[in-house]
Amino acid sequence: ELTQEQMNLLQYVMDSHVKNRLPQSLATRLILQEDMGSDDNFVFLTEMATRHVQILVEFTKKLPGFQTLDHEDQIALLKGSAVEAMFLRSAELFNRKLLERHTDVLEERIRKSGISHDYINPMFHFYKSVGELKMVEEEYALLTAVVILTPDRQYLKDKESVEKLQETFLHILEKICKRCHPDNPQHFARLLGRLTELRTFSHHHADMLMSWRVN
């Protein structure tokens, strides 16, 4: 069972996770706009990514303990986790159909964006592999917090404090996994395994952007 403190922490993180959703306006704009050329697509997806980062920062600021960290460490954590958190968030958008019927249009926009398929296929493969875990909203929110509070980010000075904060969320996530997937004791481990896959996106992201710009 979750302790009272863990319950409060989870509730607090969930409120902010739900609140910091991509604004519906952006999702509907995705559809209303007629068939965009690939350069409009570029602008649209770049705007979406920028919005993602702003939403990510709002979510992160509300993670209990984050604001007590050194300011430059806060920057290091966000810079180091932004791409991973964005792909995790996109996996949630796709798997929980948060854009309702717009999901397939978004997929089509991405496939026609001019990004090479060497990058796109692994992306949708990742969404599918995350989808198979049938994660509940609490798991997405907590896993995002775990990704952000990763102590081995570049330029991070105070690793111990970040490690302690991350552990808090890992303990809650482990209990949530046991509660929501009682028949699958390996579920928590498989969830953490996805973080390794997520890191590969971070590594390839800069090349992906470069090749996209060239196209």
């Binding site: 609140k19 920028t50 980062v53 702003q54």
Partner: peptide, 21 residues
Amino acid sequence: PASNLGLEDIIRKALMGNFDD
């Protein structure tokens, strides 16, 4: 537009400002 800023600039702005619209 914000999209022309680098990732770090967007993060710094968002940390200072408040995009909760």
